[in-house]
Each structure stands twice: as structure tokens, then as C-alpha cells.
């Protein structure tokens, strides 16, 4: 609250930096030990490696089939998000612009479903997925993410559309724009700030999701990063040299994504929660 930088502020700053280092220590342990041989890890986990063993990574890269898992995660995340953004922004806009009983009932339905825990849906979903023939397939799981993602995203879009003045759309309508024209050319670009939030929240969720892929994707070739890592860990229990290299590989993509977009992510998270 003080604007001046006093000795007290300096002490607080040092304390905060210590806390920051404390937060990062687990990463130090994981990265340092991922570059050691197995016996060296057992000897002393805190020490710096005597010799950097990049061979751990080379081996794990093969065993995990990392490029495959990365690509699967990427395809699933990207296409799920494109779909979620499209269907929820369109629906939210139309619902706000068509006030009435149907719109408000639908809105309540979409939003109240956020209370349903995934566990209360997953058992029949596996059965239903089998009937619809969407099990064990990447397009299948993408469509499931559409269904699960739509509640929160529609809720966020709904709140945002209300803040957009009607006049802009009306002048476009007078100019002879169709409904789709109005939406795509005028409304959708205006939704950009909330679209960023929707994309970020859904990316963090879908990229890291474990249970839905575990239930839907059985083929080893379809595994996402969390799935590949967990089955790898089950095979190499307590073989830390391999396990840690696998973990570092697993967390790298999402950490890079975060560091590149951190400003947007932190802003988007705050905006998404306050709404």
C-alpha cells in the first residue's frame, strides 16, 4: 500500500523472494535428478549431477512415444477448443438477443449443469459412447469435450454479450446483413477478450485432463501426454531416472505455453473467475 520503497518494503521483498524460491524447489529436484543415473539419485537427491545424463531423455522419448502423445494432446485440445468457442459463442449471443422464456430456461439448464461432477456422468457416458460408436477415437473424445466445455464457456460469453451495445448490430442489420453476417463480421470480433479467457481456461483443463481420456482412449497410439505418462509410471515404478525425465518432458509443453502467454493467462483467469 505504501508507494515509497522503504527498508520495510525491501525486507518484505526479500521474504517474498524466499517464498518464490520455496515454490520452485520441487522443480529443481525433478530437473536435476532427471539428469542423473539411478544410483546417483539414491545416493543424494539434493546434489548437482556429477555428469549430465541426457541419455535418460533419449530413452524416455522412445518409450513414451513422446511425439505421438504430444500430437494427440495437441489435436484434441485445439479442435475441442475451436468447437467449444464456436458453439458456445453463437448460442450465447442468440440467447441474449432473444429474451424470453425459452432462452432463460436454456440458460439455467446450461449453467446449473456445472454442479454435476464428472463422476456422476462417466459411467453411462462410456455406455452411450459405445452405442454412438465414438469410443476409442480422437474425434469422439473431441465431441465429448464440446458437451462438457459448453456450460462454463456459454456462461462466460453470455455475461459478456450483455455488455455489447445493440446499436452496432442494428445498424448492420439495416445495411442488409444476415444474422450470420452480423454475428461473424461484427459480434464475434467484439467478443475477443472473453474468447481469450475461454480458450485459456479450456486449454488448461483439456490439456491436463486425465480421467476422460483414460475412459475413452484405449489404444496406445491414441494416448495423450497424461495417459502416456501414467502408464509409463506404472511400468517403471520407482525407476526415478527414467520417471523424472518423462515428467520433465510431460510438463514442458504446457509450461512453455504458459510462459509465452502468461500475461493473458493470468488476466484471463482473473476475468473468468470474477464473472
Amino acid at each position: 500500500m505504501d508507494e515509497k520503497y522503504t527498508t520495510k518494503t525491501l525486507l518484505i521483498e526479500l521474504f517474498a523472494i524466499c517464498l518464490g524460491i520455496l515454490f520452485l524447489i520441487p522443480f529443481y529436484f525433478v530437473i536435476v535428478n532427471s539428469l542423473k543415473g539411478f544410483s546417483e539419485i539414491l545416493l543424494d537427491a539434493a546434489a548437482w549431477p556429477r555428469e549430465l545424463m541426457f541419455s535418460n531423455y533419449a530413452e524416455v522419448w522412445e518409450i513414451l512415444n513422446f511425439p505421438r502423445a504430444f500430437l494427440n494432446s495437441l489435436i484434441i485440445t485445439v479442435f475441442s477448443i475451436i468447437g467449444i468457442v464456436l458453439i458456445s459463442s453463437m448460442a450465447a449471443w442468440k440467447m441474449v438477443r432473444t429474451p424470453g422464456k425459452i432462452s432463460s430456461i436454456l440458460f439455467i439448464l446450461f449453467v446449473s449443469a456445472m454442479v454435476i461432477p464428472f463422476q456422476a456422468v462417466m459411467i453411462p457416458l462410456v455406455k452411450l459412447g459405445g452405442i454412438l460408436g465414438v469410443m476409442n477415437s480422437i474425434p469422439g473424445i473431441i465431441m465429448m469435450y464440446f458437451g462438457f466445455g459448453v456450460s462454463l464457456s456459454l456462461f462466460l460469453y453470455h455475461g459478456f454479450v450483455k455488455t455489447i451495445p445493440l446499436e452496432i448490430e442494428e445498424s448492420a442489420k439495416v445495411d442488409g446483413c444476415t444474422q450470420f453476417g452480423v454475428f461473424w463480421r461484427i459480434v464475434f470480433p467484439l467478443l475477443k477478450p472473453i474468447t481469450v479467457t475461454v480458450v485459456i481456461l479450456n486449454t488448461l483443463w483439456i490439456w491436463n485432463d486425465y480421467l476422460l481420456p483414460l475412459l475413452v482412449l484405449q489404444d496406445a497410439s491414441l494416448r495423450t501426454i497424461p495417459l502416456a505418462t501414467s502408464s509409463f509410471f506404472a511400468q517403471y515404478t520407482k525407476q526415478w531416472d527414467m520417471g523424472l525425465a518423462g515428467l520433465v518432458l510431460g510438463i514442458t509443453p504446457i509450461i512453455i505455453f504458459f510462459l509465452f502467454l502468461q500475461k493473458h493467462i493470468i488476466k484471463g483467469i482473473a476475468a473468468g473467475s470474477i464473472k
Binding site: 448460442a91 452411450l128 465431441m143 465429448m144 462438457f148
Partner: peptide, 17 residues
């Protein structure tokens, strides 16, 4: 506009529930 969202929502969340 609303149909696609509603369709996926009903099939994936409400029907299984």
C-alpha cells in the same frame, strides 16, 4: 445458433446423467 451447443450438451451431460 443454439442447436449445436444444446445438442452436444444434452447428449454428453444430460442424457448420461
Amino acid at each position: 445458433f443454439v442447436g449445436p451447443a444444446l445438442l452436444f450438451f444434452l447428449t454428453i451431460q444430460i442424457v448420461p446423467f
